[in-house]
Design a protein around this nucleic acid. Structure first.
Length: 781
DNA sequence: GAGTTTGAAACT
DNA sequence: CAGTTTCAAACTC
């Protein structure tokens, strides 16, 4: 297993990607590079999911629009740049396929031309095969053309391919796959060194929930028309489209900032996870960009280019599929900025997540730093949103593209299901990380040539490439340039990509650590499905440590010594999560002990392939929606205590339960009583809470209202004058009157009257004193 | 908060 | 598959 190279750490961007909103923002300075908005600028805040996006790219768009070209660029390594970040691998998507095309194989690849500003022209054909595979060919870095012209060693590998696959829960065939056809008409695509196997990215979408509503072609708003897709997608199609939108806000050379939205529409098999209802794929991960849709449809190259200039606007946001969706996938993709042309070049790290929830992690580029020598500066902000229909579980699955990517820092927000990831690109993170450094970067010596090298494969911040893949790919020396950088082979995997065959078929239940292998014949690249926490772990632990393969070995050594807390006893582990803020001791369920953890995972899966599946799942047809997958085994609790997993999950025991003396069934009087008691208790609590809230509110209101009346003395209330001393003095006065009455043998009625009179006098004195104090205060004030 | 109870998972 | 052990959460005091 390989780990992310430590050197990449320095490259990390400061940007924080807000996963909840996908927005790719790019300020594209044109003639004069304007300082790019720094960091996570207001754009994030301003970004609204509802906003329109000027441009939309859709794959397999319903419309027959042919113009759309999507270039995805993933960072690739270049000799000149030590860091893989600098170079980018480009994926070209040519979506102009009609919806029908998605179903039918398109033998003849349609060449697409990408012009990345002045940067690059990329053309890649891609076709939608009958098998529903969409393959995006990675365009070589500045690819061959430019790079060579500059004499810069280039990454020779063929390019990454992106395969988008939708797999239904039932293991149904992939919905959308872009077969990577060899033909690369375009100019750039590949250079001769094809020795390296093309990287392929496979995006797998898991069938959506049944409740999902059919997506209408490209949900994108205004964009659809722009794209030229005139025909809405019909739901009748077997495979429906799933749209991934990427919103990019860019500053047009001449025009004001604009938001570009990329939409990738992927066909979904009608057979969703839940076979019960016909599922219409929905655009779950819709990204809404803020901004006014302005631009006409244009060809956009999403390329990861070298971030040459400072102009780039780093922040990009990735929209995550709505919480509503049961499952999320976290996709982390990293794109590097491409040198760029003012044109809209978007480095689109295309990562796709498998799993139920999809998080798109994007790598923002830091604004400020620009490579000195680069003429064009453009920062690309790759954003990717993938909407995936989820099925049952709410677990996050994170897939990291194997390709080189900038390091990722993830921030977990309590209470938020989204993970915020900070991605840093080499160019931005530190001003130094540029090509400029001679020692590292040969490019520096060659000022003229654009440093942008898209060749660098996407770097996976997180694990995942099958080990064997690494071996295979590896050392293919790209060019003369020594230092350099790895192609795919350099991808370091944090997590072993050991394929777990038993689980692969059912993507919806992929256990942590599962590696998703590319489609047969597609390529070497695989994805590992990781729990979202894993991402967190990555960010928490020093990336350097993770990065170095040596560290990995180190951890391996540890495993022999320390005992393995990784077992089913730990809920975190059982849930496929990393331990976080729990009380476990000698915890190995973390990134530092990934090897042990993976072994434990594998061991668990060996014992029980369903170990990481949610215990509470859907029941059989006709049964209640939820039931325990294995059933409980209670003997003493009567299944009416939280010891019982069924009871704890608030579901009734079913026929599969092996409990003794079960009282957790529908008609059980004990259960009803318990429920009533629980309801009553809950009501009581609510009432108490409401009462407290009301009282508190009243007090607060009272204080608020009285305060203005007494400007001096802090707005004291009258009763504030009744201090302890005053009360005691009052009591003394009353007692004195009582004693006198008693001594004088006064009748009780008289005594009471005397005492009350005295009390009245005391009150009058108190009031008088208060008024006086108030007046004094007023005067003083 | 300490001790007990309980049942899931691991183990044999 | 059954019995035992281990463990951590739930529960009780």
């Amino acid at each position: 297993m390989d780990v992310v190279p430590s050197e990449l750490n320095s490259i990390l961007p400061d940007e924080i990607m807000d996963t909840e909103a996908i927005v790719m923002e790019d300020s594209l300075p044109v003639a004069s590079p304007a300082p790019a908005p720094s960091g996570v600028d207001a754009t994030e805040t301003s970004v609204s999911m509802e906003t329109e996006v000027p441009e939309i790219f859709s794959l397999c768009s319903t419309a027959t629009s042919t113009q759309m070209t999507l270039a995805l660029t993933t960072p690739t390594t270049t000799d000149s740049v030590p860091c893989t970040m600098n170079s980018g691998t480009q994926l070209l998507l040519t979506p102009s396929v009609s919806s029908s095309q998605c179903h039918t194989p398109a033998p003849a690849p349609k060449p697409t031309t990408l012009v990345a500003g002045g940067l690059q022209k990329l053309s890649a054909p891609f076709t939608l095969s009958a098998n529903h595979q969409l393959i995006l060919n990675k365009v070589g870095s500045s690819s061959g053309v430019d790079a060579k012209s500059h004499g810069t060693p280039l990454l020779k590998h063929e390019g990454q391919k992106l395969v988008v696959t939708t797999i239904s829960k039932g293991g149904q065939p992939i919905v959308l796959t872009l077969p990577h056809t060899a033909a690369k008409p375009g100019t750039v695509v590949r250079t001769g060194d094809a020795t390296v196997q093309p990287q392929q990215f496979k995006v797998v979408a898991i069938g959506g929930r049944t409740e999902l509503k059919p997506v209408v072609g490209v949900q994108t708003v205004s964009t659809a028309s722009q794209l030229g897709s005139s025909s809405p997608q019909t739901a009748s199609q077997n495979q429906q489209l799933k749209t991934v939108q990427i919103t990019k806000k860019t500053v047009a050379s001449t025009a004001g900032p604009m938001v570009t939205k990329f939409i990738i529409t992927k066909a979904l098999s009608s057979k969703g996870l839940s076979s019960q209802t016909s599922v219409s794929p929905v655009l779950t991960g819709r990204v809404l960009g803020q901004g006014t849709p302005v631009t006409p449809p244009r060809t956009i190259a999403i390329a990861d280019t070298l971030n040459s200039a400072s102009q780039s606007v780093p922040t990009s946001k990735v929209a995550i599929s709505p919480l509503m969706s049961p499952s999320k996938l976290t996709v982390v993709s990293m794109a590097s900025p491409s040198p760029g042309s003012p044109q809209k070049t978007v480095s689109l790290p295309l990562s796709v997540a498998l799993g139920q929830q999809i998080l798109a992690v994007q790598q923002p580029t830091s604004p400020a730093k620009a490579a000195p020598n680069q003429s064009t500066s453009q920062t690309v902000k790759p954003v990717q949103t993938v909407a995936v229909g989820g099925v049952g579980t709410s677990q996050f699955k994170t897939i990291f593209p194997l390709a080189a990517t900038p390091s990722v820092q993830q921030i977990q927000v309590p209470g938020s299901r989204f993970h915020y990831v900070r991605l840093v690109t080499a160019t931005t993170a530190s001003g130094t990380a540029h090509n400029s450094s001679p020692s590292i970067n040969s490019a520096s010596s060659q000022p003229a040539k654009p440093l942008v090298v898209n060749t660098a494969p996407m770097r996976m911040s997180v694990p995942i490439v099958p080990a064997q893949t690494v071996k295979q790919v590896v050392p293919k020396p790209l060019n003369s340039t020594a230092q350099v950088v790895p192609t795919q082979t350099q991808q370091r995997l944090i997590m072993p990509a050991t394929p777990l065959p038993q689980i692969q078929p059912n993507l919806t239940n992929l256990p942590p650590g599962t590696v998703l292998t590319s489609a047969p014949g597609v390529g070497n690249v695989g994805y590992a499905v990781l729990p979202a926490q894993y991402v967190t772990q990555v960010s928490q632990s020093s990336f350097v440590t993770l990065a170095s393969s040596a560290s990995y070995s180190t951890t391996t050594g540890i495993q022999t010594q320390a005992r393995m807390p990784l077992n089913g006893y730990c809920d975190c582990f059982a849930n496929g999560e990393f331990c976080s803020n729990c009380n476990c001791t000698n915890c190995f369920n973390n990134l530092e002990h990934e090897s042990e953890r993976l072994k434990a995972i594998k061991a668990c899966l060996d014992r029980n392939p369903e170990a990481f599946k949610p215990k509470i799942g859907k029941g059989k047809e006709g049964e209640s929606d939820r039931r325990h997958s294995k059933g409980c085994n209670c003997k003493r609790s009567g299944c009416l205590k939280n010891y019982c997993e069924c009871y704890e999950a608030k579901i009734m025991c079913s026929s599969i339960c092996k409990c003794v003396g079960c009282k957790n069934f529908e008609e059980s009087p004990e259960r009803k009583t318990l429920m009533h008691l629980a309801d009553a208790a809950e009501v009581r609590v609510q009432q108490q809470t409401a009462a407290k809230t009301k009282l508190s509110s009243q007090i607060s209101d009272l204080l608020t209202r009285t305060t203005p009346a007494l400007p001096c003395g802090g707005g004291r209330l009258p009763y504030t004058f009744v201090t302890k001393e005053v009360a005691e003095a009052t009591c003394d006065c009353l007692m004195e009157q009582a004693e006198q009455a008693e001594l004088s043998s006064q009748p009780q009625a008289v005594a009471e009257r005397v005492i009350l009179e005295e009390f009245g006098r005391c009150l009058m004195r108190i009031i008088s004193s208060a008024g006086k104090a108030k007046m004094d205060c007023s005067i003083n004030c």
